[in-house]
């Protein structure tokens, strides 16, 4: 059986809020290492990969591999019934028909109990190769969100160009063009504004802004975001969570004209 207790319901609420417009039904794969999810969007252009390690929970117990097939719209409805600071416990049997959620207020003597009916989901699983990326950019997640939103007003696509010490986001649209350049930046006083660009070779790739704007819904999960790029491979956008957990998005590039 599965029993997983989260100190703060907000983590799961934010994860589901961040991915539910990209994927609708997905399996939460539970085993002794934690709870994982991998799902592609309908067009097979973007992929979500979530890992909530067992250390994220306290306690965490899962004796067998259990796949919880959940409709994310339903999941979101139930998670909205939890206060952000509630303690959240997920429970399921070994061959479950439902997943149970218990929300407990640490300050009040309130216990809320919900069940969500599970679905059988036949999901394709993709093997993602370990990649040494040519460019890894760490930047404030809010900054990345703003860039994507701003440029999406002008164009469907953005070119991300990483070169020594700088990364440039460039778009060409019907009404005009836009370009935002960021340089390596590190401040002791405001580390949350740091930009770090690690580069082994220059990279230039073009991506659909519609998907990037969607990924940025995860910005509330982490103050910083990591963009990993290599020529001719999908972009990795990673939000790191506590205890080595993460929410990752992969996006296939567009080819030039």
């Amino acid at each position: 059986m599965l029993e997983a207790r989260l100190e703060q319901a907000s983590i799961l609420k934010k994860v589901v809020d961040a991915i539910k417009d990209l994927v609708q039904d997905c399996n939460f794969d539970c085993n002794d290492s934690g709870i994982a999810l991998q799902a592609m969007d309908n067009s097979h252009v973007a992929l979500v990969s979530m890992m909530l390690k067992s250390d994220t929970f306290s306690p965490f117990r899962c004796d067998r591999n259990i796949a919880l097939g959940i409709n994310l719209n339903s999941f979101q409805k139930v998670l909205r019934c939890a206060q952000n600071e509630d303690i959240l416990t997920l429970k399921a049997d070994d061959s479950p028909d439902v997943v149970s959620l218990v929300f407990e207020s640490s300050e009040q003597d309130r216990i809320s109990e919900y069940d969500i009916k599970l679905m059988d989901i036949d999901q394709e699983h993709l093997g993602i190769p370990d990649t040494e990326y040519a460019a890894t950019i760490t930047m404030p997640s809010g900054e990345f969100q703003r860039i994507c939103r701003d440029l999406s007003a002008l164009s469907e696509s953005v070119a991300i160009e990483a070169e020594k010490n700088a990364v440039k986001f460039v778009c060409n649209g019907d009404i005009g063009n836009g370009a935002i350049s960021l340089r390596n930046h590190s401040s002791v006083e405001k580390p949350e504004q740091n930009v770090n660009i690690e580069l082994s070779e220059p990279v230039a790739l073009t991506f659909s802004l519609k998907y990037l704007v969607n990924f940025c819904k995860a910005s509330g999960l982490s103050g910083s975001v990591k963009l990993c790029l290599s020529n001719e491979v999908p972009l990795l956008v990673e939000y790191e969570l506590a205890s080595n957990s993460y929410l990752r998005f992969y996006l296939a590039p567009k080819i030039g004209d």
């Binding site: 973007a46 190769p129 073009t206 296939a252 004209d257």
Partner: peptide
């Protein structure tokens, strides 16, 4: 839209 590749070109099904 035009020019958009899919992930199947890069990641294999397992």
């Amino acid at each position: 839209s035009s020019g958009q590749r899919t992930l199947g070109l890069f990641f294999k099904k397992i």
